[in-house]
C-alpha cells in the first residue's frame, strides 16, 4: 500500500558563500529599525508530494531528486522535512 508524503525542502547558499540577497534584506530590516540582526540568508522553499510505501522510501526518493535537480551542490545546501499526509 502506497502512502502519500509531503516533503518540504529548504535550499540555501552554502555557508561561507556571499549571499547578496540575504545581506540586502538584512540592510532593509535594519533600515526599518530592527537592530541586533546577526545574519540574514536568502533561500528557496520547495514542496513535493510523493507516494511511497514507507517514509524511508520517500526520503530516499526525495534525496535523489535533490541530487539530480533541486539542488546544485556546488553552491547550495539543503535540508528537508518529510511527513505522511494525514
Amino acid at each position: 500500500m502506497q502512502k502519500l508524503f509531503q516533503a518540504k525542502v529548504y535550499v540555501s547558499l552554502k555557508k561561507g558563500l556571499a549571499d547578496p540577497q540575504g545581506s540586502t534584506i538584512k540592510e532593509a530590516l535594519e533600515s526599518l529599525g530592527y537592530r541586533n540582526l546577526s545574519e540574514v540568508r536568502f533561500g528557496k522553499y520547495i514542496e513535493v508530494k510523493l507516494r511511497a510505501k514507507t517514509k524511508k522510501g520517500a526520503e530516499q526518493k526525495l534525496k535523489e531528486m535533490c541530487g539530480k535537480l533541486l539542488v546544485n551542490p556546488i553552491i547550495e545546501e539543503y535540508s528537508y522535512h518529510i511527513e505522511e499526509e494525514g
Partner: peptide, 10 residues
C-alpha cells in the same frame, strides 16, 4: 565545471 550565482550587485 563550476556554477553561476547572482551578480554581486543583484
Amino acid at each position: 565545471p563550476g556554477a553561476m550565482m547572482k551578480n554581486k550587485n543583484l
